[in-house]
């Protein structure tokens, strides 16, 4: 599903955030991406969500070479990826349900279908009763869950999550991990960046470990 071959990313500042990273994630896999702060976790996820382009090497997702995508193809590709951002990135002048509906609205999904799927997604993250609230009136954990609902509402093939449990208490963090595991049950490929090692012990999954932009453990083929 996701294949990196000899991928390097150098930011315009000259800093090489990733160097010669190669790995393959098969469809339906569940993988943690770990590493110290500044190791390049967010950078790796941004290469997959096509916020950044690799400086060298190839990133293939569902057999598409991301470097080749242009214009509306980029937008169409992003609709197949659900991203949970490190800083929730919610729109504060829109209600929770409007925030969650955004990926469907941009995809041109019709109104009743949108309503239905938004409610289903909010139900899944346990926020159905707060659909009409504004994000600012929710706790940090609730905002994080709104972000998750928005990431899954478009039925993506891949879910990327950047520190989704970063500022949550352990019980809530476990709950959210359970959510991701549920999504994984329906054959969605899940990649989660975290430095909460507790999860690694409890959940059976693949691990990609980064250190200073190099892959130090994980599938090194390709």
């Amino acid at each position: 599903m996701i294949r990196f071959s000899q991928v390097s990313k150098r930011y315009p500042s000259g800093h090489e955030a990733l160097s010669h990273v190669s790995f393959t994630l098969v469809k339906g896999s569940f993988t943690f991406l770990t590493g110290h702060s500044g190791a390049g976790k967010s950078t790796l996820l941004k290469l997959i969500s096509l916020s950044e382009l690799a400086t060298r090497g190839q990133v293939l997702v569902a057999d598409k070479n991301l470097a080749r995508l242009k214009g509306n193809r980029i937008a169409a590709y992003r609709r197949t990826i659900g991203t949970v951002f490190q800083e929730h990135k919610l729109l504060h002048d829109r209600t929770v349900e409007d925030n969650v509906a955004l990926p469907l609205v941009v995809a041109g999904t019709d109104h009743s279908e949108t309503q239905r799927r938004v409610r289903a997604a909010l139900d899944k993250v346990g926020l159905l009763n707060k659909a009409r609230r504004y994000p600012i009136t929710l706790s940090g954990g609730e905002q994080q869950r709104v972000g998750i609902a928005r990431a899954v509402v478009g039925r993506p093939q891949v879910i990327l999550a950047d520190e989704p449990t970063g500022n949550l208490d352990p019980a809530l963090a476990d709950e959210i991990m359970q959510l991701f595991l549920q999504f994984n049950q329906v054959d969605i490929t899940v990649l989660i960046a975290t430095h909460d090692y507790r999860h690694l012990e409890r959940i059976r999954c693949g691990v990609l470990a980064l250190s200073d932009g190099r892959l130090v453990s994980g599938e090194q083929d390709a």
């Binding site: 509306n72 937008a75 992003r78 609709r79 991203t83 941009v106 995809a107």
Partner: peptide, 14 residues
């Protein structure tokens, strides 16, 4: 901020 998020979730330029 809104433009950035719409772009991220796959809104076309149009």
């Amino acid at each position: 901020a809104e433009i950035e998020i719409i772009d991220q979730v796959g809104g076309t330029h149009a």
